[in-house]
Design a protein around this nucleic acid. Structure first.
Length: 295
DNA sequence: ACCCAGGTCATCA
DNA sequence: TGATGACCTGGG
């Protein structure tokens, strides 16, 4: 939670508990943050730039103004939430308790919906490093340049900026068969079949159903989009890591179906399942856990 | 050469 | 409904 928050010249200073920059930005929920120094990250969302540096017991924010910080970044970084309380609430059992402690500084971001949608379209059968590369390629090719100090960033292209782009036009992005998914997404957003902004106001199930009209948005991708772009914290995205770890710890090692895994997560954590998922995913991936292993 | 990565789709019973 | 392969691409 954010405390002792104040402006200091062009900078904003604050003390924030449960906030680790690397854990939050390199855990695979966002693919846009660049490490520009020790404990220092630079990011861009919509047209807003933010430079965050962790110095001692303080966080220093630069590249933004007070108003944008309060109205946009506070929500994006989920700074008003008490993650201490979250961690306590999800710790219903020793394994998740250990994972939550390990990922103590991981916060779930509230990212822009369209960028989240496309990023996770790119995520299918892919790895985090390459997903980041694809998002970067797309932004360089179709976004607008923004500079900050010596760094140049490219905005994530709006649907309008991708209008008319064919799979061949997208070939330089190197996203393979996912280009077809992106073309479909652009078309459906532009003709208003899909409204990415609707996922914040719709209830979880309806938001998922809405997004799944787009080719390439299956159950896992939809769950990620509504969790990271829609603030639906009851979502429990089931990827290879979460499937493995949930089965070995909470389903007696049995191999089960995705629906069963989600149901178990709902029983254990209810509306906080998304936080638990993130702690488990982060722990399992960092430790390269194998099937049957217990935290 | 083979396997894997924050899965999804088409096809077939 | 439920199971089975194929799938762009780049790194190990």
């Amino acid at each position: 939670m954010i405390k002792d928050y104040h402006q200091k010249g062009r900078e904003i200073h604050a003390r924030i508990t449960h906030f680790d920059l690397r854990q939050t930005f390199a855990c695979g929920q966002s693919f846009r943050w660049r490490e520009i120094g020790a404990e220092r990250y630079l990011g861009l969302s919509l047209d807003h730039i933010l430079d965050i540096e962790h110095i001692g017991d303080r966080f220093v924010f630069r590249g933004t103004d007070h108003n944008t910080f309060e109205t946009y970044w506070m929500n994006y970084l989920d700074l008003k939430r008490d993650y201490g309380a979250i961690q306590e609430a999800v710790s219903v059992e020793p394994s998740i308790s250990k994972a939550a402690k390990y990922a103590r500084g991981l916060r779930i971001l509230l990212q822009e919906e369209w960028e989240t949608l496309v990023s996770f379209l790119f995520s299918s059968n892919n790895n985090v490093k390459r997903i980041s590369g694809l998002v970067e390629n797309l932004s360089r090719s179709f976004g607008r340049p923004r500079s900050y100090e010596s760094h140049t960033f490219y905005t994530f292209p709006r649907p309008e900026e991708l209008a008319g782009a064919s799979c061949e036009d997208l070939a330089p992005i190197r996203c393979g068969y996912r280009a077809d998914y992106l073309v479909d997404a652009v078309a459906k957003v532009l003709d208003a079949t899909v409204d990415p902004g609707s996922i914040r106001r719709l209830p979880y199930e309806e938001a998922v159903k809405h997004l799944r009209q787009i080719k390439g948005v299956g159950p896992k991708v939809a769950d990620c989009i509504v969790l990271y772009g829609g603030g639906k914290h009851e979502s429990y995205p089931v990827d290879v890591w979460v499937k493995r770890v949930t089965e070995s710890i909470y389903l007696e090692g049995r191999s089960t179906k995705e629906a069963q895994i989600k149901e178990r997560a709902r029983e254990l954590w209810g509306d906080l399942a998304g936080f638990a998922q993130q702690y488990l995913f982060y722990y399992a991936r960092e430790h390269q856990m194998k099937a049957g292993e217990i935290i």
